[in-house]
Deep mutational scan, measured.
Amino acid sequence: MKTQEELTEIVRDHFSDMGEIATLYVQVYESSLESLVGGVIFEDGRHYTFVYENEDLVYE
């Protein structure tokens, strides 16, 4: 089982391919040991929310 830090790094690596990240945040109250819920804001102003669970990243 991966730690929350490892899950965060996986998500950061994925989004870094889309541009320069200004902020990546995790909603700790919605996340667990198996899933990571949060959002990412890019330097150009784009903002996505995401759920990473079971090695699957869903964002909008």
Rank of each mutant, 00 (worst) to 15 (best):
M1S: 13
M1H: 12
M1A: 11
M1Q: 13
K2V: 05
K2L: 09
K2P: 06
T3S: 13
T3Y: 04
Q4T: 06
Q4R: 12
E5Q: 12
E5T: 08
E5I: 09
E5V: 09
E6H: 08
E6P: 03
L7Q: 04
E9P: 02
E9C: 09
E9A: 13
E9N: 12
E9Q: 12
I10A: 07
I10T: 08
I10N: 05
I10E: 07
I10M: 10
V11Q: 00
V11H: 01
V11S: 01
V11E: 01
R12N: 05
D13W: 14
H14G: 05
H14C: 08
H14T: 11
S16F: 06
D17Q: 15
D17H: 15
D17T: 15
M18V: 05
M18H: 08
M18F: 08
M18P: 01
G19I: 02
E20Y: 10
E20A: 13
E20L: 12
E20T: 14
I21V: 07
I21G: 02
A22H: 10
A22D: 06
T23M: 10
T23G: 06
T23D: 07
T23E: 08
T23N: 09
L24N: 00
Y25W: 08
Q27M: 14
Q27C: 13
V28F: 10
Y29E: 06
Y29V: 06
E30R: 08
E30I: 15
E30V: 14
S31L: 09
S32M: 13
S32L: 11
S32Q: 11
S32N: 11
L33W: 10
L33P: 13
E34Q: 14
E34P: 14
S35I: 13
S35K: 15
L36F: 07
L36G: 01
L36K: 00
V37G: 06
V37F: 07
V37M: 13
G39Y: 13
G39P: 00
G39E: 12
V40E: 00
I41S: 04
I41R: 05
I41N: 03
D44F: 02
G45N: 04
G45C: 05
R46N: 05
R46G: 04
Y48L: 07
Y48M: 06
Y48D: 00
T49H: 08
T49A: 07
T49G: 04
T49S: 11
F50E: 00
F50Y: 06
V51Q: 07
Y52R: 02
E53H: 13
E53Q: 13
E53V: 15
N54F: 10
N54I: 05
E55Q: 12
D56I: 15
D56H: 15
L57A: 02
L57M: 07
V58G: 05
V58Y: 13
Y59F: 10
Y59L: 07
Y59E: 03
Y59C: 06
E60M: 14
E60G: 10
